[in-house]
């Protein structure tokens, strides 16, 4: 008997499916606009797009509650948006305006928002993992039923901090949800050129962490895995490691001619575009029609236009405030 298409998940109701689709479209359109604004020199510095990987963040973030914490990477616009950081404040941050979520001190790579417990925006590969370990340790010591979700890429697996943290997470049975976004490239270095063992979930398993690979191009699979893992983590079973197998459609950042990969490979992966495939499934199922889709696109477009207007009308922090926040309170010399 042929396998059923994965969309036949019994408890995926129409409203929920459309919400998942909408979340992915939100990230995609926001980032497409960010890329345009980068070309127009409105946004500077480094800009790392998540396009192609949206299903991962959409699925994973659904498993989190407001009291949980998120530690993400420098490719985090989508995570921040879904966590509830407003598109306005993210866009203003990328413009460098003081209305930005990090007051223009962080930029694209360092989105922070204490209100939604979104703790970066960390641009040292692997460097967010120890922070997440500490968040989870604090929750465990305080007997709080919270999850810390830590996102990192396949590149982080090569860092010593990754191995130190896998060990600590397991050794101390910490409530941390380890979300490895394996997009097969650490900047331009293919996973197979960097790792003797390319099955990354096995690395976590070696530390006695419950771990499994997930189809990172399938938003339903991502959500299902994240819900299951978050439940285990929240109930005190210790860490879980999800290896989301995904792919980055765009360049690493805005300066990358992509000499390290074959265009045909990119085209092959694009056939599995998480948005297009899910949209097709929902249309085939009769859950989604053109009117629904248009409404999603219109709502998202309007949110983004509003964010751009907000960023454009934002203000520059006075130069006199330059050294503010190096320390709390008074400015030491």
């Amino acid at each position: 008997m042929a396998l059923q298409p994965t969309i036949a998940t019994p408890n995926l109701d129409a409203g929920h499916a459309i919400a998942l689709l909408r979340d992915m479209v939100r990230i995609r359109r926001f980032e497409e606009k960010a890329a345009e604004l980068y070309s127009a020199s409105k946004i500077r510095g480094f800009l790392h797009l998540y396009i192609g990987e949206e299903a991962v963040a959409v699925g994973a973030m659904r498993a989190l509650r407001p009291e949980d914490a998120v530690v993400a990477t420098y490719r985090e616009h989508g995570h921040a948006l879904l966590r509830g950081v407003s598109a306005d404040s993210i866009m203003a941050e990328m413009y460098g305006k003081q209305e930005g979520c990090s007051r223009g001190r962080g930029g694209s790579m360092h989105l922070f928002d204490a209100a939604t417990r979104f703790y970066g925006g960390n641009a040292i590969v692997g460097g967010g993992l120890p922070l997440a370990i500490g968040f989870a340790l604090a929750d465990k010591l305080q007997h709080r039923q919270r999850v810390t979700a830590c996102f990192f890429g396949d590149g982080a697996v090569a860092e010593g901090e990754f191995h130190e943290c896998m060990n600590l997470a397991a050794l101390w049975k910490l409530p941390v949800l380890l979300c490895c976004e394996n997009n097969l490239y650490a900047m331009g270095t293919a996973l197979k050129r960097a790792q003797s063992q390319t099955d990354l979930s096995l690395k976590a398993a070696a530390y006695e962490i419950a771990s499994w690979p997930v189809d990172g191009m399938d938003v339903v699979a991502c959500e299902e895995a994240a819900q299951r893992a978050a439940l285990a983590v929240r109930s005190g079973e210790g860490p879980c490691f999800l290896e989301f197998r995904t792919y980055r459609f765009r360049a690493h950042s805005m300066y990358d001619p992509q000499l390290y990969r074959d265009k045909r490979e990119v085209e092959e992966w694009k056939k599995r575009d998480p948005i297009a495939t899910f949209q097709n499934r929902l249309t085939t199922q009769g859950v989604l029609d053109d009117a629904n889709m248009k409404r999603i696109e219109d709502e998202v477009a309007s949110e983004i236009e509003k964010a751009i207007a907000f960023a454009e009308s934002g203000t520059w922090e006075p130069i006199e405030d330059l050294t503010r926040f190096a320390y709390s309170g008074e400015k030491p010399t």
């Binding site: 914490a69 460097g127 120890p130 922070l131 997440a132 340790l137 604090a138 010591l141 810390t148």
Partner: peptide, 11 residues
């Protein structure tokens, strides 16, 4: 780093 994270999370 865990000390930093724990400090950020109230300890």
């Amino acid at each position: 780093g865990a000390g930093i994270g724990a400090a950020m999370n109230g300890m």
